[in-house]
């Protein structure tokens, strides 16, 4: 009886587990192995070099720069995205007069905010290349030049380019979280808002005292998603910036350095070492985020 049940369960599990092992666990294990070799991608038998790749990594200024950028993104991208998304979601759902409905035209805005999410990342990057163009054809610089100002090198000035990237990442992510938080807010019972409003709470107090605490679970999930997304940023940087992470490495991120090292320099061993570092960053962040933001669930 029990044996039969084990077989029954195992029968269901064997295929997904096998797929997971073959396509997820095995490549990870392989990457850890390759990180200790000087494999260049074409030869069949890579040479083991011990910790050499990691030693080189420790002295690699560009990679440290990339880590720095990822860490800045890790902090700012969730804060900005969640902050803006919460603000918009609140306005769309509870920002109307009396704190019970959305502001005027909220249904329209909800659709508009979601647009960036529908676009492929490469499209977004190409789009913003045009927005940020440094000449008269640029959407932002065109008016500036027409008014007689010097154009801003949104993507060509080392001091500005990274912030342009951050802006695009936030712009792209906000829509999804507006929808997520809208769903969260609409699941909060109306009478809570009404009761608070009767007790004399204004819009700001409603937000801080009612909406935010009751949305905490959703925010926590969003935080972890965005954190991992911040560590994995690649396509926007790769497609949008000069020199793929430039100018002069000013926008580069870990994933871009891994891609460059593997597929342009053909140093798969070294790139895998970078991948291992990124792996630990991601795992570390996920564990930390879930630990720190653990909080009692409020039932309603």
């Amino acid at each position: 009886m029990n044996h039969g049940r084990t077989r029954f369960v195992a029968g269901f599990l064997v295929i997904p587990v096998a797929l997971y092992v073959i396509y997820v666990i095995a490549p990870y294990a392989q990457a850890f192995y390759i990180a200790f070799t000087d494999w260049r991608g074409v030869n069949a038998s890579p040479r083991l070099v011990g910790l050499e790749n990691f030693q080189r990594l420790a002295a690699d200024n560009v990679f440290w720069k990339a880590i720095g950028h990822n860490l800045i993104l890790l902090v700012l991208m969730p804060i900005l995205t969640l902050g803006i998304a919460l603000f918009f979601a609140f306005l769309l759902n509870a920002g109307g007069r009396g704190g019970t409905g959305g502001i005027w035209g909220s249904k329209f805005y909800r659709v508009v905010f979601f647009f960036p999410q529908v676009l492929a990342v490469a499209v977004v990057a190409a789009l913003f290349q045009q927005v940020f163009r440094p000449d008269r054809s640029g959407m932002l610089n065109g008016p500036l030049i027409a008014l007689g100002f010097e154009p801003i090198g949104f993507l060509s000035s080392t001091g500005v380019a990274f912030w342009s990237i951050l802006a695009v990442l936030v712009w792209q992510a906000v829509g999804f979280y507006v929808v997520l938080f809208s769903a969260g807010i609409s699941s909060i019972p109306r009478d809570l808002f009404e009761a608070a409003a009767i007790d004399g709470a204004g819009g700001i107090q409603l937000f801080w005292r009612v909406t935010l605490p009751l949305l905490w679970d959703t925010i926590q999930v969003g935080w972890v998603y965005l954190g991992i997304a911040a560590l994995d940023v690649f396509a926007v940087v790769w497609v949008m910036t000069a020199e793929h992470g430039g100018p002069d490495h000013s926008t580069t991120v870990m994933a871009a350095e891994i891609y460059r090292t593997a597929f342009q320099y053909f140093k798969f061993g070294y790139a895998s070492a970078m991948g291992v570092v990124l792996f630990f960053f991601t795992i570390g962040f996920a564990t930390l985020a879930l630990r720190l933001s653990r909080r009692e669930r409020i039932e309603f």
Partner: peptide, 9 residues
């Protein structure tokens, strides 16, 4: 240089 050269491809 042409204005904006650094950002043009």
């Amino acid at each position: 240089l042409l204005q904006g050269t650094a950002g043009l491809d």
